[in-house]
Amino acid sequence: MLPNFYPDESADSAYKVDYKALYNRGYRGILFDIDNTLVEHGKDADERAKKLIRNLNELGFKVCFISNNSEERVKRFNKDLHQNYVYKAGKPSRTGYLKGVMILETTLSNTVFIGDQLFTDIYGARRAGLKSIFVNPIGKDTEIQIIIKRYLEKIVLYFYRHSNTKRKSRK
């Protein structure tokens, strides 16, 4: 059961993912969570986020934001980025992810999802058949339900990292 929540890859942050390597491996679409993945919860796109998205577009990636937030929140984040988005995505339901792939006109096999929550972001991406990259959250969580989820995520991440160590030692 725990492997259902395991990402395909992980990185310290969305800003440390090797996007050029993803592009060279044939990926052309990126679906991003917003809050605590690209910016602190509720914040507008900052210069770092703007630069990342600009660089991804220059590399040849199509980008779409997938968020459970309201359209107002996602529009506000996206106002200077001008990317596609799906709001009220219902993660971990497959629907928002599939809609994002359709909007980008990419495929499940050449699109990657990047997010900071195992039980919504990564689980949903796996359910949709997408490659997933888990990144450490930006900022502190203040809502109790998120704090509890983060504690449970630590348990899953322990087993995920332990299983990766075992696989690497067998090679």
Rank of each mutant, 00 (worst) to 15 (best):
G124W: 03
K149G: 05
C64D: 06
Q83T: 15
N24Q: 09
I66G: 11
N68C: 14
F159T: 14
I53D: 08
V156A: 05
K91E: 15
A11N: 05
I66V: 15
K50I: 11
K88W: 07
N110D: 15
S169P: 00
N4C: 11
K88R: 15
S109G: 12
T37I: 06
I147T: 09
N55Y: 04
L2W: 03
A14G: 03
L52K: 06
S163Y: 02
D18V: 03
G60V: 10
I66S: 10
A11Y: 00
F32R: 06
G129D: 10
H82M: 04
I146M: 08
I147D: 00
I146Q: 01
Y123L: 11
N164D: 12
G115V: 02
G115C: 01
Y158S: 08
I103Y: 01
Y87E: 13
Y15D: 10
N68T: 14
V63Y: 01
H82F: 07
N164T: 13
G100A: 08
L59H: 04
A89D: 14
N136K: 05
A89K: 00
R167C: 06
G60S: 08
N57F: 06
L2Q: 03
K131T: 13
P137H: 09
Y15P: 14
R167T: 13
S13Q: 10
K171H: 11
L38K: 05
L157N: 09
N164Q: 15
T120V: 04
T107S: 09
D33F: 02
R161E: 11
S10D: 10
